[in-house]
Amino acid sequence: MAMNVCVLYSGGKDSNLALYKASKEMKIKCLVTVKPESEESWLFHYPAVDIVKYQAKALGIPLILDSCRDDEESSIKALYNVLEKAIEIYSVDGVVTGAVKSTYQATRFQRICWDLGLWCFNPLWQINESKFLHEIVNSGFEVIFTRVAGYPLKKELVGRKFTWEVVEMLLGLKEYINPSGEGGEYETLVLDMPMFHRKIEVEYEVYGSDYDASIRINDVRLIEK
């Protein structure tokens, strides 16, 4: 029988691919999202919470949402809270995360899961960057860049979709950046993927400087696929 799990979800490519992989073997009972104060958080990605709510609706999966300060103590406390709720409400036995390379993140996720008696699954852990990026495009994900945070990634990339061409461009920049964005070089948002029953449409504007820019989302809606 499939295990009941929750997924640590930030709305970007990593947590969506982890969710997609987990859905093939596990029963996804809920998503859990912890929103940090800013992009400075070491433990969590900085998600656009309103969008995460739309993504949960598009997926038809319940969402447990909490917020925290950027410091480690507050982040860990919030993670305990959301996971305890997931156990209580949805009887989950495991957690799926989108951790890729950070031993800081993985260590904390593993310790918290152990304390709460939960299995911890990290299907993207140590994944080869080329395999990872190609899998996103091959699996039919529609992903846009929501932030670039340093040379040589330019402002023009913000709002642009992940395509074969973009993946090859990122892999070609290996000398300067981690192509999968693991070092915070860029952030992404998933607008559609095979598990979405409806897709997300956003209206946005781009702000910031040449190599440090983000999108400001003005409107979001769910549309038929």
């Binding site: 073997e25 699954f121 299907p123 140590q126």
Partner: peptide, 16 residues
């Protein structure tokens, strides 16, 4: 026990 764990513990070794 689970294939999902193999992606974490086996696939990185196979890549090497």
């Amino acid at each position: 026990k689970y294939r999902l764990s193999e992606e974490e513990f086996v696939d990185p070794v196979i890549d090497i």
